[in-house]
C-alpha cells in the first residue's frame, strides 16, 4: 500500500498502482462498484401529488370526526348512541314486554334493598318485619306505596300492627326507573297479582311529591298517608304487553301494538 494517503495523493508510481490493483482484485466486489451519485432533480409526478392529496383529505375527515383535540377529559363522543348492528333493523338490546322489563329491573332492586328485612319471599318474619304479600298498602293505591318506600314508615301498618322501630327511607340511590321497577315487582310477584305497570313517569311524580312534603325526610305515619296519599300516581298507564327497552325502560316507538293501550287494570 502506498505510504501516502490514498485519498489525496496523486498516484504516479507504477509500483503503487500495481499494488492497489492487486488489492482491488482481491476485493473485486468493491472494485466493480459504481460511485454513489447523489440526488437528481426530477419533478415529482403529478400522480404522486394527487394520491397524497387524496390521502390527506381522508386523514382530514378522520381527524374531523374525532371530536375536540387534546380534550383529555372526554372519553366518549358527545351524544353517543350504539350503532345499528349489521343485519338488524334497530339498535340496542332486544325490546321486552313492559311488565317483564320492569319486573327484571325491580327484582334487582328488591334483592339489594328489600330482601334483607322482608325476606326473599316478601313475607317478613311476622315479628319485626311485615309481609308484603297481599298487603293492602303494597297492592293498593300506588302513591301510598311509593311514599312508604321513599320515606319509610313508623307506627301502625295496614293491618294496624306496629313493627318495632318501623322502616327507614329507601330513597338513597334510587332512580325513578328503580322505584317504578321495584313497585311493579312487588305488586306482581310473591303471589300479588295486580297486573299493572308503575311507569317511570309515575315514579318520578312520586319522588316529586315526596320531596314536596311539609315534613320532608321524616318517616311516614298512617295518619299522614291516609290524609294525603290515598290516590293513584298520576301518569299515562302503560300496557303491560307494550315493548320497552330493557335497559332504559323507555317505550320503543313503533314496536307497541298500534292501538292505544287500554287503561291498565286498577286495583
Amino acid at each position: 500500500m502506498s505510504e501516502n494517503d490514498p485519498q489525496t495523493a496523486p498516484v504516479d508510481s507504477v509500483d503503487a498502482s500495481v499494488d492497489q490493483g492487486a488489492v482491488a482484485r482481491e476485493a473485486a466486489a468493491c472494485a466493480r462498484e459504481k460511485p454513489l451519485v447523489g440526488c437528481g432533480n426530477e419533478p415529482i409526478s403529478i400522480w404522486v401529488i394527487a394520491a397524497c392529496g387524496f390521502v390527506v383529505l381522508i386523514a382530514g375527515a378522520i381527524l374531523g370526526s374525532g371530536g375536540r383535540l387534546f380534550s383529555y377529559g372526554e372519553l366518549i363522543r358527545a351524544n353517543y348512541a350504539r350503532a345499528t348492528a349489521p343485519g338488524a333493523d334497530k339498535s340496542g338490546p332486544e325490546p321486552k314486554a313492559a311488565l317483564d322489563a320492569y319486573m327484571a329491573r325491580g327484582a334487582k332492586i328488591y334483592s339489594a334493598k328489600c330482601n334483607g328485612c322482608h325476606g326473599p319471599d316478601a313475607k317478613g318474619d311476622g315479628a319485626n318485619y311485615p309481609s308484603l304479600v297481599g298487603s293492602a298498602w303494597s297492592t293498593g293505591e300506588t302513591e301510598r306505596f311509593a311514599m312508604i318506600i321513599l320515606n319509610g314508615l313508623t307506627g301502625p301498618t295496614s293491618t294496624g300492627k306496629a313493627y318495632g322501630a318501623g322502616m327507614v327511607s329507601q330513597a338513597a340511590g334510587l332512580t325513578a326507573e328503580d322505584l317504578a321497577g321495584v313497585m311493579t315487582y312487588v305488586r306482581n310477584n310473591f303471589g300479588n297479582e295486580v297486573g299493572d305497570v308503575i311507569t317511570t313517569e309515575m315514579a318520578q311524580a312520586a319522588m316529586d311529591t315526596s320531596a314536596a312534603r311539609d315534613n320532608a325526610g321524616m318517616q311516614m305515619t298512617k295518619e299522614e298517608l291516609d290524609a294525603n296519599h290515598v290516590k293513584p300516581l298520576p301518569g299515562e298507564p302503560l300496557d303491560p304487553a307494550a315493548l320497552v327497552d330493557p335497559i332504559t325502560l323507555v317505550k320503543v316507538a313503533g314496536a307497541a301494538p298500534a292501538a292505544a293501550a287500554p287503561a291498565a287494570p286498577e286495583s
Binding site: P6, V11, Q20, G21, V23, A24, E26, E33
Partner: peptide, 13 residues
Amino acid sequence: THSATDSDVLQRS
C-alpha cells in the same frame, strides 16, 4: 482517473 478509482477502491475495501 484510474488511480483515483483505485484509491477509492482501497478505502472501501
